[in-house]
Design a protein around this nucleic acid. Structure first.
Length: 274
DNA sequence: ACCCGTGTTCGCTG
DNA sequence: TCAGCGAACACGGG
């Protein structure tokens, strides 16, 4: 599920359900998501109390206090990761890979079908020293986007603007869906060399990311209020993503096309996006 | 059986 | 030394 909007919802879920609670026990499969590898990877968390949950791009940084001092949990959801809360004794979700039991009996499950995600226990003070966190650009929602920086960075690469946009050191949290959505809003052809993007277009990209991410967030929030929608994804909430062959919602003339860029599906309107 | 998948990382190349 | 590229990772779902 996860690009920035889904990870933001995961962050809110962890804040709402876990902050203030103490960890009674942990349990993990011998899953490749665990760092360091091994089913005891989460053991240092036992006895810790949830203090804070931060999100940077697609990364979750959970801070806990324990008798042995501060400790942290770094979580990345990969392609199919989810945090799920279950009541005591309730059936675990499908693909549950690790479990964190809270002091009131509820269980936080980390479920991940494809296991491209990651769970890593770290010294709490070390979040900023984690290499893959340190490499991230400023979060577009928490810190905002500086269009001039974006423009300067895009100038220096020969990759397509769509691929450049997914670079997490530029605008963390933008993935394959948000990249297509952003470039549709910005009216830019995703195949354009990043170096051809003008300052005015960089402004449209910056605005496009914010608008696209916020709209996706609003959709998810609306969904979360309606329990019946949570499990099964309702109608496609996107402007162009996965809408190949449909009429463009802006010009209402051309049909949305699907092409492959850098091995990933990319959707755009050939009439609106130049 | 075959293709596709909201992500990252590795190894190779020039 | 490094940007760029394709493959790999794992496991379904359609």
């Amino acid at each position: 599920m996860p690009e920035l909007p889904e990870v933001e919802l995961a962050a809110r879920l962890l804040r709402r359900e876990a902050i203030g609670h103490r960890i009674g026990s942990v349990d993990a499969d011998a899953s490749r998501v665990l760092r360091p590898a091994g089913r005891n990877a989460l053991a240092p968390l036992v006895g810790g109390r949830f203090r804070d949950v931060r999100r940077i791009g697609k990364h979750l940084l959970v801070a806990l206090d324990s008798a042995r001092g501060p400790i942290g949990l770094h979580s990345h959801l990969g392609m199919t990761g989810k945090w799920v809360v279950r009541a005591r004794g309730e059936e675990p979700p499908r693909f549950s890979r690790a479990r964190i039991a809270l002091d009131d009996g509820r269980v936080l499950h980390y479920a991940d079908q494809r296991m491209f995600g990651r769970l890593e226990v770290v010294p709490r003070a070390d979040f900023s020293k984690l290499e893959d966190v340190a490499a991230l650009g400023p979060d577009p929602i928490e810190q905002g986007i500086d269009a001039r920086t974006i423009h300067a960075r895009l100038q220096r690469t020969r990759r397509s603007v769509k691929v450049a946009l997914m670079d997490q050191s530029l605008i963390p949290g933008v993935g394959n869906i948000q990249a297509s959505e952003t470039l549709f809003r910005a009216r830019i052809d995703p195949r354009r060399p990043a170096s051809s993007i003008t300052a005015a277009e960089a402004n449209r990209i910056a605005a496009g990311v914010i608008a696209s991410v916020k709209e996706s967030l609003a959709h998810l929030e609306a969904q979360a209020g309606d329990v019946s929608y949570v499990e099964e994804g309702g109608p496609n909430p996107f402007a162009v993503y996965a809408r190949e062959g449909e009429r463009c919602p802006r010009c209402k003339r051309a049909k949305i096309e699907r092409i492959v860029i850098d091995g990933r599906s990319t959707f755009f309107c050939p009439h609106c996006q130049k």
